[in-house]
């Protein structure tokens, strides 16, 4: 039978870990864990990093510590919101620790949009970006289709644990397929199409979270996230650059790209 301190640390670890794994900020993870500890009169120390967290909980001579590795990181705002609700209920004492533990396990089992839904959403957003930038039907269709194809391919690709191979491939295919479609049809605004396809793949959240972490004093997380975001953007642009370089080498016209 686990003691209350052990349950507190388990709850805090699960909540903070899930926040970090689903796109939350570092301070949110630390604060959530801290608030859970506070609600049960425990002294609590936590260091959260984008890739893992460590914490100790102490109360009246009893103490426990825990380390968790944050493996694959995605963005799932439904999970984020659900964890937030659980921690709020815990702090308000409208939920017991046992209830919290079981609902946190349910939250971890929430399915992120996968397969066809993510392919459709990715294609839809790229298509709508083309409209946003002032493109017509042709740009909408090409950007949407290519983005959907890329997303489908990335799903088939094995998980590389955060390595940016997917970015390189995504950028390359965006430019290569966009150029091919426009060349075959002999029409369309190439730069608008490629930018629209790239937009959904850009690491905007990582970058803003990085700056926010730095301004909040979480220097390690801030530097790590900003570096991650800049690297991903550079690799994405590099992938597109390779495709365009090949196109120019094969005798394509540069004026058509700008």
């Amino acid at each position: 039978m686990a003691t209350e301190v052990q349950k507190v640390i388990e709850t805090a670890r699960l909540s903070a870990g899930m926040i970090l794994a689903n796109g939350g900020e570092t301070y949110r993870a630390e604060e959530t864990a801290g608030r859970i500890g506070q609600a049960f009169d425990c002294e609590m120390d936590i260091i959260a990093l984008p890739t893992g967290l460590t914490m100790t909980v102490a109360r009246g001579g009893e103490s426990a510590s825990s380390i968790a590795r944050v493996g694959s990181r995605t963005v799932d705002l439904t999970r984020l919101e659900a964890v937030n609700a659980v921690s709020r209920a815990l702090t308000a004492h409208t939920m017991t620790l046992d209830e919290a533990l079981s609902s946190l396990k349910n939250i971890a089992a929430i399915k992120t949009p996968d397969g066809w839904r993510s392919v459709l959403a990715s294609g839809g957003s790229a298509g709508m970006f083309a409209v946003m930038f002032g493109g017509g039907w042709f740009e909408f269709l090409v950007a949407g289709l290519v983005s959907a194809v890329i997303q489908a391919l990335l799903l088939v690709l094995p998980d590389q644990g955060g390595a940016p191979l997917g970015c390189l491939l995504g950028g390359f295919l965006a430019a290569a397929l966009g150029l091919t479609a426009a060349t075959l049809c002999g029409r369309g605004n190439v730069s608008l199409i490629v930018v629209s396809i790239i937009m959904p793949q850009l690491p905007g959240l990582a970058f803003t979270n990085g700056i926010r972490d730095s301004m909040h004093g979480d220097m390690v997380s801030g530097v790590a996230r900003v570096t991650d975001a800049v690297m991903r953007a550079a690799v994405l642009a590099g992938g597109a650059g390779i495709a365009i370089w090949c196109y120019l080498r094969m005798g394509g016209a540069a004026t058509w790209l700008i």
Binding site: E81, L120, A121, S122, G124, S125, M128, A130
Partner: peptide
């Protein structure tokens, strides 16, 4: 026309992005 496209496009793109990042339905 450009302004209307910008407004409609940004709304649609954000809606799809919300689906991609699994924004809670009520939000």
């Amino acid at each position: 026309m450009g302004v209307l496209k910008g407004l409609a496009g940004s709304f649609g793109a954000c809606l799809c992005f919300g689906l991609l990042f699994h924004v809670p339905k009520r939000c």
